[in-house]
């Protein structure tokens, strides 16, 4: 999803996630009406990666603790011990494919990680529960170009491997064109362009730019 500032992309995303409540209409996730449900309830079906790497992880907690929070979505009130030694190896297996050296830092507090590491961890956490919908809110915008590319590649890999329905907001038109199989352009709260499949493949940056200018 692309669109200029103030077009309503983030508003839409926040409404789906539950941060904002809808003024009218209904919102259904996987067949469940969640229009008036809180954020925590919606997390059964959706996950979100925020723009700010600090938002998606708890900085004071360790990498392992953050993963536990993401993995055991239900049972946040449970009185069972959350850490079992057997999980350490499983967590390392999860972290290894990220290629960020996080598998050796399970007990490190997340606040000491770099922005790229934190965002990669956020991404992994968001996809651990195999959500029906993954929301990406300009999740590479706060990273340097190289890390941004790395996180984008990782996103592509995880999303295709797990076959996740994903909605990504981006300001980078090249990313919008390269990734995904549908492109929506929003302007002034209205959908201006909605292309998918082959039509999207044939779309070029110049076409988008002329649309933006209109």
């Amino acid at each position: 999803m692309i669109g200029n500032n103030g077009a309503g992309k983030s508003t839409l995303l926040n409404t789906i996630a539950g941060t904002l409540s809808a003024d009218a209409g209904t919102l259904a996730l996987a067949g469940h009406d969640v229009t008036k449900k809180p954020i925590a309830y919606r997390s059964k079906w959706l996950s979100r990666v925020f723009q700010d790497p600090k938002m998606g992880t708890a900085g004071e907690l360790s990498v392992a603790q953050n993963l536990t929070l993401a993995q055991q979505h239900t049972g946040s009130m449970s009185l069972h011990r959350y850490h079992k030694a057997s999980q350490t190896a499983a967590y390392q297996e999860l972290l290894r494919p990220l290629n960020m050296g996080l598998e050796d830092r399970l007990t490190t507090q997340v606040k000491y990680l770099s922005g790229g590491q934190r965002q990669a961890l956020s991404l992994l956490m968001a996809t651990l529960s195999q959500p029906d919908l993954l929301l990406l809110d300009e999740h590479t915008a706060a990273l340097d170009p190289q890390t941004s590319q790395k996180v984008m590649d990782l996103t592509q890999k995880i999303v295709t491997e797990n076959q996740l329905t994903t909605m990504m907001i981006t300001h980078k038109m090249s990313d919008a064109l390269r990734y995904g199989n549908r492109l929506v352009m929003v302007q002034d709260g209205q959908i201006k362009l909605d292309v998918r499949g082959a039509e999207k493949q044939n779309l070029r940056q110049e076409d988008l730019l002329t649309l933006f200018a209109e």
Partner: peptide, 22 residues
């Protein structure tokens, strides 16, 4: 050391993230 305690710590540290994680 329980999951409830972890949820408490997470809430105090980052409530947006905690809510997003159920």
């Amino acid at each position: 050391k329980t999951r409830l305690g972890l949820s408490l710590m997470a809430t105090g540290n980052n409530s947006a993230m905690s809510a997003a994680n159920g």
